[in-house]
């Protein structure tokens, strides 16, 4: 196929498929724990790390990773301080992230580089970023498989899980780090503004068809991969931006799923 003649497209597919598997895996827990806004807050916070990275001359992905981890724990700390208004924590951290990114972006000389983090630059992935995505992707997937039953239990009954002996605090901390590093590595490739959509849309589609939690996880990853492949092909052949095309492919499938289900219910 013509599309695979280019090394940058082969790279885009490898990175895209890895991300398309791990982002929805994380997304299932994010959606079921009603933390969808957290993905949004972290993806925006990653931009603060990107600008700091660009200004200090360190790898922006590394900067995004650090800022995401700090933001994720920041949300938890604020939540504990004001439990009666826990949702404010996400808004405060998101605003802080956007604020820092907005102010510091004025000092970034190469604005094209900064902009590539907003909507991603999946066809311009360096060797370092390729290996980073492969390495972190494997870590996230392994952690998700090992914590599968703990995350499931905590998603529907956190107090029950705690009573049953699940180390809820530890699992929550590990999961927070998993979200943070996933968002950070995805920021470069699919874009900070799109990663949270990739966390939610495949899961929303899977929930329309799955007949169990396990199927929800498997379908989410499968849909994620399908949207990635279709989105990248469309982007290549029609000349569209890959990040947005991938997400819109997912949204289109979600709308079709809802219509089909509605039709069959009649």
């Amino acid at each position: 196929m013509e599309i695979f003649q280019y090394a940058f497209m082969r790279r885009a597919f490898i990175v895209g498929i890895i991300l398309a598997i791990i982002i929805p895996c994380i997304g299932v827990t994010v959606v079921l724990k009603r933390l969808s806004m957290m993905g949004d807050a972290l993806s925006h916070s990653s931009l603060a790390g990107v600008t700091i990275g660009l200004l200090l001359g360190i790898n922006p992905v590394l900067g995004a990773m650090i800022s995401c981890i700090v933001a994720a724990f920041g949300i938890e700390i604020i939540r504990k301080k004001i439990p009666q208004h826990a949702e404010i924590a996400i808004a405060i951290i998101m605003s802080t992230g956007i604020g820092i990114a907005g102010v510091l972006s004025g000092f970034v000389k190469n604005t094209a580089n900064f902009n590539s983090f907003l909507f991603g630059s999946i066809v311009a992935i360096s060797d370092f970023e390729l290996y980073l995505v492969i390495g972190i992707g494997l870590i996230v997937l392994l952690a998700f498989i090992l914590l599968y039953k703990e995350l499931f239990f905590m998603s529907f009954n956190e107090k029950g899980a705690e009573l049953a002996g699940v180390p809820v605090g530890l699992v929550n901390s590990i999961f927070t780090i998993l979200i943070a590093i996933t968002v950070a590595i995805a920021a470069r490739t699919v874009g900070s503004l799109i990663v949270s959509a990739m966390m939610v849309v495949p899961v929303a589609c899977a929930m329309q068809w799955a007949k169990s939690y396990r199927q929800t996880v498997v379908f989410s990853a499968l849909f994620g991969v399908c949207f990635m492949i279709v989105g990248l092909c469309l982007a290549y052949y029609v000349g569209l931006k890959p990040g947005g095309t991938i997400v819109l492919t997912g949204v289109a499938f979600f709308m079709i799923s809802i219509m089909i289900k509605k039709f069959y219910r009649r």
Partner: peptide
């Protein structure tokens, strides 16, 4: 919540698993 009855019940076997 998208889970089967068996998945829901089995989850509480954590201390034994």
């Amino acid at each position: 919540f998208p889970a089967t009855c068996e998945e829901i019940v089995k989850a509480n076997l954590f201390s034994q698993i």
